[in-house]
């Protein structure tokens, strides 16, 4: 049996918690454990922050729509926005522990790119899709 729910909110930082709680509710319905739910919330938080900062470029520039789906094998989260599409391959990788230890000057440390890194680490699958009509879609999957 599959289940699905959607929510649409303005693209603002103060809406992120609401989105996280909405998705957490779905994750609970999918019987995921507390650690998984924390990971999903964190991945959703980073996804929303990226949409506001990179797709829209600022707050209040467009909506964020989020849908969660449960089926026999997956808990799937789909984010849709109408901002600028971006190429995830262009996001620089965060520094490795080795690179961090060899860092002579902390000024060289950029803490960007962490959001995408978190999403990829915390979810089983992360897919970006760009469609002129639907807008940008980010699909994140946690296997059940």
């Amino acid at each position: 049996m599959s289940q699905q729910k959607s929510l649409k909110v303005p693209g603002r930082y103060d809406q992120i918690r609401l989105i996280c709680e909405f998705v957490a509710e779905g994750a609970k319905a999918a019987r995921l454990d507390e650690d998984d739910i924390f990971h999903i919330e964190l991945a959703c938080d980073e996804a929303c922050t990226n949409i506001i900062e990179h797709a829209y470029g600022q707050e209040n520039s467009g909506p964020i729509e989020v849908t969660w789906q449960i089926n026999a094998h997956n808990f799937t989260i789909i984010f849709t926005d109408q901002g600028q599409s971006f190429d995830p391959d262009q996001v620089p990788l965060p520094l490795s522990t080795q690179e961090l230890q060899n860092l002579d000057n902390l000024d060289d440390l950029k803490v960007g790119g962490l959001g995408l890194h978190f999403m990829k680490k915390l979810m089983d699958e992360v897919i970006f899709a760009f469609d002129k009509e639907k807008g940008n879609q980010l699909i994140m999957i946690k296997k059940l």
Binding site: F38, E41, L42, D45, E46, T49, L106, D107, L109, V111, L114, G115, F118
Partner: peptide
Amino acid sequence: DYMSSAGLRAIVTALRAAKK
């Protein structure tokens, strides 16, 4: 009980400033 990369950025920025 919860910290996203935005929180990390704040504490790394503080570390960078303090060490300088």
